Simulated scan of single mutants.
Amino acid sequence: MSPFGRALADGDRLEVAGAVVTLKVNRRARRVSLRLDRTGRQIVATAPSPRRLPEAAAFARERAGWIAERMAELPDRSPAQPGMTLQVFGEPVRLESGAGRARWIEASGEEPHRITAMGEGEGYARAVILQIRKRALAVLTARTAHYAARLGAPMPKVAITDTRSRWGSCRPGPNGTAGSIRYSWRLALAPFEVADYVAAHECAHLLELNHGPRFWAHVKALVGDERRYRAWLRAEGARLHAFGR
């Protein structure tokens, strides 16, 4: 019997071995399967059709041991706290306690960049993340302008989000007008060249809203071989999503 008192539906969530298991329907799938979503810190149980969602839920419960092992592989959560040193676009940034409004203080001499904020716990973390988001918006807006110009595309509107599902998304404007690009602020925690690749990737979508050969030709013309950047995000993405939680 479904724990929801109704038929299971795409997107329903269960708890197995202390982990969140999200049920998904993928009509291209040939069988029921489980996978670890590292950035979302959850397990995804996929079924080929809605009627097989109960089978997917049962399969997840049967594989409770496997689920526990996969979740144990995830990096520990890393809450923002004074004394911590982060890498923001590849440069060290020290977190400090301070009175008044949160501030980003530029590096000077032997001192690294610093973020000062008051409070503690979640309040402190929110203030720190706001400063990182502002930095992300400034840097990624500049890189977007750079790549849009190289591609001969109108400068899109840039926004910063906290999505877990993707590092960036692009919506081209109609008839060659300026579109919009949204980036995850967590790209600021990646090396500059990795975040820069994502900016190039999203700008290439201003011309090609697909991942076909012409799209990848644009990306390679902007940043060269992109595979190392994609590999870095696959390997380290979960660590970026563990920060501040």
Rank of each mutant, 00 (worst) to 15 (best):
M1L: 12
F4T: 09
R6P: 04
L8C: 07
A9D: 14
G11D: 09
D12S: 07
V21W: 01
T22E: 14
L23V: 08
V25R: 04
N26Y: 07
R27D: 05
R27M: 04
R28I: 11
R28D: 12
R30N: 12
S33F: 05
L34D: 06
D37P: 09
A45V: 09
S49R: 15
R51L: 11
R51Q: 14
L53T: 03
A57D: 01
A60G: 05
A60Q: 02
A60W: 01
A60N: 03
E62W: 07
R63F: 05
E69A: 15
M71G: 05
E73M: 14
D76V: 09
R77W: 05
P82C: 08
G83M: 12
L86Y: 03
L86W: 04
F89G: 00
S97G: 08
S97P: 02
G98I: 02
G98A: 08
A99Q: 11
A99N: 09
R103K: 14
R103L: 03
W104C: 04
W104L: 13
I105D: 02
S108C: 15
G109E: 13
G109C: 13
E111V: 10
P112F: 04
I115N: 00
T116F: 00
A117Q: 03
G119A: 13
E120N: 09
R126N: 10
V128K: 00
R133G: 04
R133F: 03
K134N: 12
K134F: 05
K134P: 00
V139G: 01
V139K: 03
L140N: 01
T144R: 02
A148H: 03
R150E: 13
P154Q: 13
M155S: 09
P156A: 12
P156M: 07
K157T: 14
K157F: 11
V158I: 11
V158W: 00
D162C: 09
R166G: 08
R166N: 12
W167F: 05
G168H: 00
C170S: 08
R171F: 06
P172N: 13
P174F: 09
N175Q: 15
A178R: 14
S180A: 15
I181Q: 00
I181V: 13
R182Q: 12
Y183K: 05
A188E: 02
L189T: 01
P191V: 07
F192E: 09
F192C: 05
V194Y: 00
V194R: 01
A195W: 00
Y197I: 05
Y197V: 02
V198W: 00
A200K: 01
C203P: 02
L206F: 04
L209F: 11
N210S: 15
H211I: 10
G212D: 09
P213S: 08
F215K: 03
A217T: 13
H218T: 06
A221F: 07
V223G: 03
V223N: 05
G224A: 05
E226T: 06
W232P: 00
A235N: 13
R239M: 08
H241V: 06
R245A: 05
